[in-house]
Design a protein around this nucleic acid. Structure first.
Lengths: 219, 219
DNA sequence: TTGACAACATACCCGGTAGTATGTTCATCA
DNA sequence: TGATGAACATACTACCGGGTATGTTGTCAA
């Protein structure tokens, strides 16, 4: 039996748990204070640990952030990709995709905020050209995710359920609506799953309204 | 004639121009790199100057940012407040307010991005309690601006042209749509005023669609 | 003409932070 | 059972950036 195929021992599981804990703590710090304002010591302190632990698992602050970004996008892809592959008319598929996406924004908010911060940082501090390459890869990842929705939007326009002229602008507007919970949503104490979903449904309904509205009639 | 009532001499005008130039340059830097990542030297360098010039006009980095924030909000208030005071049915007034607001987001984008960054920074670095006071005042300013729209939203619901249950959530969704150009809009080379307004109209139409949509029917 | 001050530039200090180098502990395995 | 290395903690360095202290130059007023 090769080492690669052997099942994970307690050692490996503990390692993965430690990594995952660091990622979650880092996501929360990045959400609270932004990238530049967050120090490695901040992340370590929020874990009751020190720098040594962080740098044992991640080579640099930039790489730690990149991993948080990837984790967030991985979760989005895992949730939405299966739905986007389904056949059938555009509108019900779009509604399911949008609903799952919004719920992701709410439930994994720290990671999604980190993704947002990453997109906003396009031309920021990445001094090293290799860091630049990593960053472009992350943005590509994000673009590919966006394309899942673009295809359904186009199909919906063909089917007459969506009305828009400029796909890029519409895509921006739609994502801005669907992503907005990462800025204003905060779970109520003792919030039930049904309440969370009701709120998400409101967001989806708003975005759908923007997509189907005839628009531009004079007031 | 008291000195206060005397008209401005060249000296005073030059002073104001210098301040305005610094504010514009700072807004652009804050937009490009965020607050923490922007150094005073960055702002100075973009003006072909040095720190001395900045600190001659502004006591600190935080105060410089606060002034950029205020300038952005001042422009918004000047543009929208007169419209919000007009009588009559909600929908046409909302459309005019929204249109002017969106155009503000596009034309004064660096300042509006700074306002956004400021809102996002609520619990960040403001160590001094007095800095805290300044910050709360800025957020109040922003809230008062938001209230201009809330009133019209409520009137519109009463008149049956808008449909929503939760005012806060709807307000967040609406502003997220109307503000979104600060993230994706960039003027085309040689863009005419008509083209700019056409784009703004698309944004307004999307937001209006979200406000009038019945929503929540099963797919 | 001169002195006073505004409007900067230059030179410097210092705290915070990314990254490193070096312990220390504990589990695992030969 | 002792050696080895993973998983950290501790101690340290280097640098960047906010803020200050001190020049320097041009303008205006008396």
């Amino acid at each position: 039996m090769t080492p690669e195929l052997r099942s994970l021992g307690v050692r490996e599981i503990a390692l993965d748990n430690s990594r995952a804990d660091i990622l979650a703590a880092a996501a929360r710090c990045f959400m609270d204070r932004g990238y530049a304002q967050t120090s490695i010591d901040d992340v370590a302190r929020s874990l009751g640990a020190t720098k040594g632990r962080i740098y044992h698992h991640f080579p640099s602050k930039g790489e730690l952030f990149a991993e948080v970004f990837r984790a967030g996008m991985d979760m989005n892809f895992a949730a939405v990709k299966p739905l986007s592959d389904l056949p059938g008319p555009a509108l019900p598929r779009w509604r399911r995709m949008a609903m799952v996406h919004v719920l992701q924004m709410m439930v994994t908010k720290p990671f999604q905020r980190a993704v947002w911060i990453g997109v906003e940082m396009h031309l920021a501090g990445a001094t090293t050209p290799e860091q630049r390459t990593v960053f472009n890869e992350l943005l590509d990842y994000r673009t590919r995710y966006g394309n899942l929705f673009r295809a359904t939007l186009l199909q919906g326009r063909d089917e007459g359920v969506f009305r828009f002229d400029d796909l890029s602008v519409t895509n921006q507007l739609m994502f801005m609506s669907l992503n907005s919970p990462i800025f204003w949503y905060s779970p109520r104490t003792g919030e039930t799953r049904a309440q969370t979903e009701a709120l998400a449904a409101r967001v989806v309904a708003y975005a759908q309204g923007g997509l189907v509205f005839e628009g531009e009639r004079a007031a």
